[in-house]
Structures are given as structure tokens and as C-alpha cells.
Write a protein that binds this DNA or RNA. Sequence first.
RNA 1: AGCGGGGUAGAGCAGUCCGGUAGCUCGGGUGGCUCAUAACCACCAGGUCGUGGGUUCAAAUCCCACCCCCGCAACCA
Length: 486
Amino acid sequence: MKKKFFVTTPVYYVNAKPHIGHAYTSVAADVLARFHKLQGDEVFFLMGTDEHGLKIQKKAEESGKDPQQFVDEISAGFKQLWDKLDIKYDNFIRTTDPKHKRAVQKVLQILFDKGAIYKGEYEGLYCVGCEQFKNEGDLVNGRCPDHDTDCEIVKEESYLLKMNELQEELVQKIEKDEFCIRPEKYKKEILSFLKGEKLKDVSISRKNVKWGIPLPFDAEHTTYVWFDAFLSYLTGLGWNGDILRLSLRKSLRKNKGLALEKLEFWPADVQLIGKDILRVHTTIWPIVLMQLGIEFPKLLFTHGHLLSGGRKMSKTIGNVIGIDEMLEKFGTDGTRYLLMSAGTFGEDVDVTMERLTEKYNADLANGIGNLVSRVIRLAQNFQFSIFNFQSIYNDSIFKNIEKFEFEKAMGYIWKIIRENDKFVEENKPWELQKNDEKKFQEVMQKLVSDLYLISDILMPFMPETSKKIKKALETKEATVLFPRIK
RNA sequence: AGCGGGGUAGAGCAGUCCGGUAGCUCGGGUGGCUCAUAACCACCAGGUCGUGGGUUCAAAUCCCACCCCCGCAACCA
């Protein structure tokens, strides 16, 4: 029986163009989706963009654009990047989609009716100059850095989501891995946070923000962006906000043998996120689900950040590595490879353009690229049909990918590549060709089969390269997969 | 203050959970080869595993203290 596999990336906030971090998460999700498709699973891979909120409203104003026009452009930019990275998603949900908005309003009404959302006050540090609330972290010595003014504590009417009443249950679910958070260290971190303090009820509406989904029960307020954004994980499957629809279908399908409907992909098998959004994904998101009586995602996998020169990438420091720059220099598959093999997925990974270039030359140009060149050249005097090959999907690589150890999976492939280089060296097929035809055939058989195997395993990571290797085996035409840089 | 992570050869990391000759890639040196993208292969150099103590026959790995670095510190989406 086919297994279903539903993977999501975060819905990216479109206040600015996509960067390398977005690419990192997305490529990983694409690798998982492709891998499971190859296993024969029924896969749904959801991506999207989060498009409301004050920040976007302001950015749009600054650039003299209508907010809708602004988000249309940025969102399109995200899609373009996914095309360039050869990311094949099944749906791309935008939170400005009318269907999504209607579903969000439906959910808000449900929660308001059952009392999970109530009218209260939001208290925060307010900067008069900015006309908005600030976080303590934004302030420098308690003052607004933009206006150099003291911020005052201001109360504003707001709607709040009850958090605390479900906190204990949430802790238990996380502990029992019913809501599984990986790697383990993030589970620990979030548990110590949840056990350490009482969750305050979260304000889920804004009065001073125009660019958002109006509350159905109070048109003066718009919905807080995160609340809106989270629900896209469900509306991305076509959910309309109707709770019953989530549970009814399943039993119907079982009884009548109906095909899997999109919505039945829920709960997500994996939600991939970066560590920056761990906390919201382990507080507001699960609480909303609990309040609605909807199942948790099975696994929330949190990866680390890409650092540059040991530091956070920042425009001020000037150590930002652009994703466009990478794509231009290393190509689509080169970029995919470098992102996935850069370091332990889950940990922070330090990269610099110099090291990436070194790795590109070592692993791609000199490694896989060169091996393909030499084997194809030798194979021009060897008769074979690639249709005779059967690929044995390696068990340890299988496990590596299931455990999100992408870098280990790649390491394993590169071990095979090195072994083959060594094998060529030891057997000198160019000599055998002249004086030992039988041995030559044997040696080439092994080389060609291994190359076929490599191309197969490489498929989820480097789909284009995988195809190119197979094509080269077919046509025996020499190809340069990855030209050396410099 | 608190919480989380890290400190292992010139560089980047793995190994730490379940103690037992310190490993990988890059870079450096020497030699080999010519099928290949000046690629590839072999060998060599290079580490008191942050510091100090403890447990143990044995500690990078377990325990304690300290130093240094990074991140988080909730509505920044």
C-alpha cells in the first residue's frame, strides 16, 4: 500500500526578497519530497508565502506601491527562485488568497464562539514616532533606535487567544513525542521554556494595521500575521475552515474505497523550519490546533542557520552570501549540493564563498564530474546497455535521509566516487583494453554499474545531474558536468 | 541574571548519548599515473581534544568548577 507523505516549508514572509536561508529550507524539503516520490509514496509538498502585516504595509508604502502589488511582486520572486533551484512543489499557498482568508475568518469565528478568543488588552512598549509597538529586543537602552525616543507602556484593545489552559497538555504531548520536535536539543530547549514560565495569552489582532484579514466579529481589527500564516498549512491543502471536513472524509474513504483527497494529507509528516521560528511553531501553532481539535503535525524538524565566517549573515557586517550569486557561480545542482552537504543539517553551518568554491571544485568538478568524464571516455570502447542495470537503493543512505542527515548521505555517495577513482587507478583499463579484453569488460562493467547507481542515489539531491549522467551513459558522449572554477 | 548550543591538526567539521590505540574533507609536502575537467592514486608532516580538578585499569567521551564564543530572552511573522 502506498504511504502518504506531506511535507511543508514555512510560509515565507514577503517583506523582502528571498535569501539563502529560504533556499536552504526549501531545497531540503524538495530533497525529502523527491526521495519519498522515488520510494513510491504519495507525496504532497506545500510551500507558500505569508503576505500580511504591518511590516509589509510599511514596506509597500516606502516603495510607493499598493500592498497587494507589492506582495504580488515579492511572492513571484520567491516562485522564480524555486524554479531556479529546481524545486517541485505541489502547491504554493499565498495568505492573500481569498479562499485562505475566508477559512481564517471561519476559524476565528469558531474560536471566538467557543471562548478561546476573547476581547482584552494588549500591553506593550509603544514608540510614538513609529506609531507601533516595539519589542524589548528592538530597543537600544530602552529607547527606539529609529527615533531615539523613550518608549512608553501603552495598552490597546485587542483580542487574545487563550494559551495557558492548554499549556500542561502541550508539554505532555511534546514530552511523549506526540508532537515530535527534532533534533532532540530543540525539544529540550522548548520544554525547558514551557515548563519554566506560564504562557501569556497571545494577542491575535491588531487595531493599527490595515493590511490584514479583518476579524469577522470586529471589523476594526485585523488578524495578527502568525495566526493567519499558520493556518495556511491547512488551507494549502484546500481546507475551507470547516472542522468536520477534516475528520469525516477519512472514514468515508475507508468504507467506500475513495481516493486520497488532498485534505487527508493532514497531519503533516514533516514540517521543516529554521530555528528562528521554533518558538512560535511550538506555542501558538499547536495551541491553535488544540483549540480547534485538529491533529498535530507528526514531526517538526528544526534546522540551524547558515552562518558566514562564523557570524550571522548581516548587511551591516557585509558577510551576506547571496543565493543568486551562488546559483550563478555553481549552477542549480551545484548550489543544491553545496547547501545540502555544507554541514550537519540541524546544526548551524558556517559557510564562506571561498570554502564553497573549494568544495565545488573538490567534490563536483574533480569528484563526480571528473569520474563521469573518465568513465564515459573509457566506456566508448565497451558495449553495454544501461537498461540492464538495476539500482539497489542503499540502506544506509535511506536511513540517513529519513533522519535528515543529508550531509551523511552525500558523504556516502562521495565515498563510492572515491572508491571508483581508486578502482580505475588500480586496474588501468586503458592498458587492459590493449592486452586483456576479458578483464577490461569486467572492470568496465563495474565502473558503469556504479556510475548508474550513483546517478540513481543522486536523484533527490541533484535531479538534473542525475539525468545527465544517465544520458551520458546512453550516448557515451563526453560531458563536462561541473566546469572547474578559476 | 536565566535558557540552549559550541570550544578536537593551518581551515571547516565528525566522534561525546552506549569511556578502550584521535577520524573525515580541504589546504601543505614527496612520489606515481596519463583514461579524465593540470583532474586521479599512494605515502608523509601536522592535534597536551578550552582550562583546572575528580571517578576509573582506561576519559575528547562520565562528574564538578572556571574561562571564552554564539544564539534565544515570545507576539521581530
